[in-house]
Amino acid sequence: MMLRGYRAGDLELLSGTWLSGELLGLPLPNWPVLAEPATVGPPSDETSELCVAPGTGFVRYCDVDWVHRRARLEIGVRREAVDSAELLISAAVAYGFRTLSLRRVYGWVTPATHPPPYLCERAGLQREATIPSAVWFDGRPVPREIWAAVRRD
């Protein structure tokens, strides 16, 4: 899966009908007709690192901390490309470790969105924590899990 730098023409990859902030930004069913899609701002400064996979989606590293060598990872996948989600996550983890030289990448997974099973495990992530009532989703507060991959040095 090839990641490349963002260009203005990639803007439509940055919005979609997924839960904002999710590690696995996969399009959700039953999205209300008047609910605005989740949107990630185009990169404009050093506070986040964003790459796109053309035709598939984007990967974004937020809260990058160079002292603790960690970042929170989000991906967003287009509806037509959901089968490539696993490749995108693996590419994102690899880029974080190899190119950004991070030691740890983590992200939020909301079980109520029913993400495909084993997607995170196959990309090398492990569930580390569960926080009840962490996000409001479809009329109620639901738990969120923190998943992470740590580079073995």
Partner: peptide, 24 residues
Amino acid sequence: RTGTLRGHRYQTGQYQDVHVYFAT
């Protein structure tokens, strides 16, 4: 405690875990 974030912080020469605590 509802989990532990492995190696989430670097302090005093080594990576430390951060525990997640929760209460209602």
